[in-house]
Design a protein around this nucleic acid. Structure first.
Lengths: 194, 194
DNA sequence: GGAATGACAGATATTGAAATCTGTCATCTG
DNA sequence: CAGATGACAGATTTCAATATCTGTCATTCC
């Protein structure tokens, strides 16, 4: 039996991701997860209070991977304007790659995220927080002239929603999407500079 | 019988809107529309090839009302910057009012629009066309410094998507939405000015 | 004794048969 | 004869019976 190893929250999450990959968000059940782990479903409920909590944890994991990837631009010691550009480009690239690489899995995670409102809010707060730091660096160095870096960052994030919100995923593969993204970033940077 | 008047496409569209209002998008049938008009459903098919075509026509009507409302800002002889501001504000106000006033009807039309891809594309082309004209006026008068008014207008329209795309309707009633909209418009105007 | 189990009640999902709807067209009606 | 009808075939939806799932908890097992 695979039960030779201790049953950790981590192992349950991995099994859940696998079950979601196989069955999709509508058909993936807690019983399936338990079966995949070779335990009874009651045992899964010892680690996660509800099915919703389990799915939320999976969502969080998924979203955190993106935050992680982008965080490197925050600490870099480079021109803030270039960092805003690169941070946004990396966000778009990451999303587009995930959506294009395995559309079904991407749709699955999009459904999960839809359900997990709180987790998504926190993710967005994390991302705008990162962007705020870069914008603040730009204001401090005099490249940007906005009054409030936090508001400016939130606005830039919202303005680029079309290029990172899963609801728009089908637009990302259209020809011209790259150009549209470029025009958006340049217009926003003009706005940040003033 | 209500059939005293001639059966026009117009009358069918009105009856369809009424049926949609009553039954919602999922349950509204062509048979219902025919019944409301006191004719057989075969007669409705004489005017609209398919149910989808009928729904598209209803969507077009709905969207055209918004285009109509906004067109006045295009012809006005005023400061282009103020006109961009007002055009965007009018768009947001119109959408928010419709969504807030009768959420169920708004949801119904949102579903219809989702189905009618082509009609929505044309609507968006019409709106960005309007905005392009205002931006071009701004470039001509020297207030704006963007290279291509059409690209700039499209970008501004996309950036403000959060404030007019029905997918975001639930965000519009949140406190702070007005401020977020204001910050977005001001950042974009800074970008247009350069 | 702390972790795992599986029987259970209520909620949710699946299924397949019956009902309704879409779109066509031969026929009817003024 | 132009416009309307309603019967029809195939597609889609509805509905109720059946099966499965979620979440709990008394009991079992190391």
């Amino acid at each position: 039996m695979a039960a030779s190893e201790t049953l950790t929250a981590e192992r349950i999450l991995e099994a859940t991701e696998e079950v979601l990959r196989r069955h999709g968000p509508a058909k993936a059940t807690v019983v399936d997860v338990a079966r995949a782990l070779g335990v009874s479903h009651g045992t899964v409920y010892r680690h996660f209070r509800t099915k919703a909590a389990l799915r939320e944890a999976v969502s969080k994991r998924w979203l955190d991977r993106t935050s992680q990837t982008l965080s490197r631009f925050v600490t870099e010691d480079r021109d803030p304007e270039a960092r805003v550009r690169d941070w946004l480009a990396a966000l778009f690239a990451a999303k587009r790659e995930k959506a294009g690489g395995d559309p079904e899995l991407f749709a699955t995670y999009s459904v999960l995220a839809e359900e997990a409102g709180e987790v998504v809010s926190e993710h967005i707060d994390e991302l705008t927080g990162q962007l705020t730091e870069i914008v603040r660096a730009g204001v401090d160095s005099g490249v940007f002239t906005v009054t409030d870096p936090a508001i400016a960052a939130r606005t830039v994030f919202q303005a680029t929603g079309r290029f990172h919100d899963p609801a728009y995923a089908r637009e990302w593969r259209k020809p011209g999407a790259e150009e549209e993204f470029g025009a958006m970033v340049e217009l926003l940077l003009r706005g940040l500079r003033g």
